[in-house]
Design a protein around this nucleic acid. Structure first.
Length: 695
DNA sequence: GTAGGGTTAG
């Protein structure tokens, strides 16, 4: 029987059969979201002139809630002459489904005041509201009440409880609920998998999945999506691929959430071919999540160009980008310091009104900072109404990268004053800031108080920061003592910091120890070899330099080639050492030569001592003058409008000679030059650098 | 007789 043909009934009072038929129609309208027809039927019922029975009103309340017309549902409920427990439950569910969680809870309380006993339906709806609000304490009370009423182990209530505890970060209680259940199903298992994942225990999530498979529980697309997401987070490519084969076997390849989870998993394990295969499989369905997962993969692979192309493609298809999309793209621009693209994306963020999103605004602070535009970064931060921890961390890290340790410390104070709790990342940035600014005591004080005062347990990276802090300031003995007393061995970053400090301060004995440790930890890392050869070269120990080079050859260690890049004319121009590939190479080298003359006239003396080659001075000078950052600066000088600050990015640290040379360049061409190397920013102007030569 | 649970990109 077709729904629309059922709308005839007696004009006086509805018979039982008629009521049942009408209820059936309303239910169908609710399911198919046919609000207009449902409203017509409702008016028809009113014209009979008789009050509607509770049973039909409950149906109408449910229908209006499902069709997102909560006001109608509330009006009906308020006017009801005889509510029963189903009416109350329908309202609680209605509020909960329409994201009106506080009302859902209030209605649950009112239901108890009205002395109606809540059943499993009411409990599951109100617990869901608790999950969304993160009200774990209220949820705990509901749990007690549910147990008292005999519904604590009911399957739906149990699933909601497990979900609530895990989403509120109390996975232990979720496990207790799970273990006490008489029956389980795939929904409850999914809540557990997702619970472990949301609490950061991705291995735990995979174990739950394995246990589920062993127990023969149905695997559906919810289970697969959640488990794939855990694989991605773990970068577990083998497990991910195994799950992919399960997806194929069970025929879930075209299920959008599974497809997206697969795309994301492949992106996270840096297998873009795999990600594209899934993304392009069967073409549809695709949505913004699919596109953003792909974009994020490209960004992580440092392929910002492909990320931007993917963005253009989704816009051409008429798909609306969201805050996730912009966050990923802007992060890509920040990593590559692609300012022009970053600014264009910022404009779009404003147009789409995502500028108030905490993730987007924080990444914008970071982007401007990483592009060297400190003032713009601060301006974006100041425009944020209630900065979250992400925004504060971004700002602190921006100050740190610019060597502004005092500002970083002040920002931490402001953050605390505003009631935002610092986390582990805050302290990494803060300690880095102190280190680059030579604020040794301040850095140490914060390191020793971070656990006591703020409850943040120092991790490997914090210890590395302290090694850097002490080493950079020349306190090599203290750094060595600190390393000895650490609860664990320093990681590669820690030894690298120590080695770098030994190089700056010319401590070859300690340097050799650090280099050895670093080579053991990361034999493929060329950094240790290069730093050590710099130390040897400084002492003119050419035999040692030769041996080291042989060692590198034998171990197949390739020196990471240095390159610099600059944004000009909406394009990123990349230059390597002695780069001859650019179409304007002739002009660039003419510019370099004329610069060298001007610099020497102004007093520049090349510092060739750290070049690990036994060649004559003039050759060394020439080599230095062909370092990629100088080529990039020369190119920027001939191609960018006068007055526009020159921002050059480099993948390695700027060498001491380039640092001195760029100071002279800034003076002789009277131009602000900003250089971002792999550890911090240098703002050169009028012959001076913002780092004050402490770096 | 009506009302309820778990997925995918920070």
């Amino acid at each position: 029987m077709k729904a629309q043909n059922l709308c005839t009934f007696s004009k006086h009072i509805l018979t039982l059969t008629e009521s049942a038929n009408v209820a059936n129609i309303i239910q169908n309208y609710a399911k198919t979201n046919q609000l207009k027809k449902a409203k017509q039927l409702h008016s028809q019922l009113i014209t009979t002139g008789y009050p509607l029975c509770t049973y039909l009103t409950n149906h109408l309340i449910n229908m209006y809630s499902k069709c997102r017309e909560l006001d109608y549902a509330v009006k009906l409920f308020d006017k009801m002459a005889a509510r029963n427990f189903v009416s109350w439950t329908a309202m609680i569910t209605g509020f909960s489904q329409n994201q009106n969680f506080v009302e859902a809870m209030t209605t649950f309380c009112n239901m108890r005041i009205a002395q109606e006993s809540p059943n499993q339906f009411a409990f599951s709806s109100v617990i869901r509201a608790c999950v969304s609000l993160g009200f774990v304490e209220f949820g705990r009370q509901l749990h007690c009440l549910a147990l008292k009423c005999g519904f604590g182990c009911e399957l739906f209530v149990g699933s909601n409880l497990a979900d609530m505890y895990s989403k509120c970060g109390v996975i232990r209680d979720a496990c207790k609920v799970f273990e006490e259940m008489d029956f389980t199903d795939e929904v409850l298992w999914t809540a557990m998998i997702d619970g472990y994942a949301k609490n950061g225990d991705f291995e735990g999530a995979l174990l739950v999945y394995k246990r589920m498979v062993n127990e023969g529980v149905v695997i559906d697309h919810y289970v697969l999506s959640s488990t794939l997401s855990a694989c991605g987070a773990l970068k577990a490519s083998y497990s991910g691929k195994c799950l992919h084969s399960v997806v194929v076997r069970l025929g879930y390849e075209s299920e959008i959430s599974v497809k997206n989870a697969l795309t994301d998993m492949y992106s996270k394990v840096r297998d873009m071919e795999g990600a594209l295969n899934v993304f392009e499989f069967d073409f549809e369905p695709r949505n913004i999540v699919s596109y953003t997962s792909l974009i994020d993969g490209f960004v992580e692979m440092d392929q910002i160009e492909r990320a931007l192309i993917t963005f253009v493609e989704l816009r051409r298809k008429g798909i609306e980008p969201n805050e996730y999309t912009f966050s990923s793209l802007i992060k890509g621009c920040a990593n590559r310091a692609a300012l022009d693209q970053g600014i264009q994306l910022h404009a779009q963020v404003i147009r789409f009104t995502f500028d108030r999103n905490p993730f987007v605004s924080s990444i914008l602070v970071d982007m401007y900072g990483k592009c060297g535009l400190l003032d713009d970064s601060i301006r974006v931060f100041d425009d944020i109404d209630n900065p979250t921890e992400f925004a504060w961390n971004s700002l602190i890290s921006v100050f740190a990268q610019h060597g502004l340790g005092k500002e970083a410390l002040e920002t931490l104070d402001r953050m605390i004053h505003r009631g935002v709790k610092p986390n582990a990342i805050t302290f990494v940035s803060l300690l880095t800031g102190c280190s680059h600014a030579g604020l040794v005591d301040e850095g140490l004080n914060h390191f020793y108080s971070m656990e006591k005062t703020y409850g943040v347990v120092p991790r490997e990276e914090h210890y590395s920061c302290v090694i850097d802090l002490l080493g950079r300031s020349g306190k090599l003995k203290e750094a060595e003592e600190f390393i000895k007393n650490m609860p664990f061995e320093p990681n590669a970053f820690g030894w690298c910091s120590f080695l770098g400090a030994c190089r700056i301060h010319g401590d070859k004995e300690r340097g050799e120890i650090a280099a050895e440790k670093l080579m053991q930890l990361e034999p493929e890392n060329s950094g240790a070899h290069v730093l050590l050869s710099n130390i040897y070269a400084k002492e003119q120990r050419w035999e040692d330099v030769k041996n080291l080079r042989k060692m590198m050859r034998d171990a197949n260690v390739k020196k990471l080639p240095g390159y610099s890049w600059v944004d000009a004319g909406n394009k990123i121009h990349i230059f390597g050492v002695e780069d001859w590939s650019h179409p304007r190479k002739k002009e660039i080298y003419e510019k370099l030569d004329s610069l060298l003359d001007m610099m020497k006239e102004a007093g520049y003396i090349p510092c060739t001592e750290s070049i690990p080659l036994n060649v004559d001075e003039q050759t060394k000078e020439k080599l230095l003058h062909r370092h990629s950052e100088r080529i990039a600066i020369a190119f920027a000088l001939i191609s960018m409008p006068v007055g526009k600050p020159i921002i050059v990015k480099k993948n390695l640290r700027v060498c001491a000679d380039c640092h001195s040379a760029i100071k002279y360049i800034s003076k002789v061409v009277n131009r602000m030059i900003i250089v971002r190397d792999n550890s911090r920013f240098h703002h050169f102007a009028d012959g001076l650098c913002s780092c004050g030569d402490y770096w």
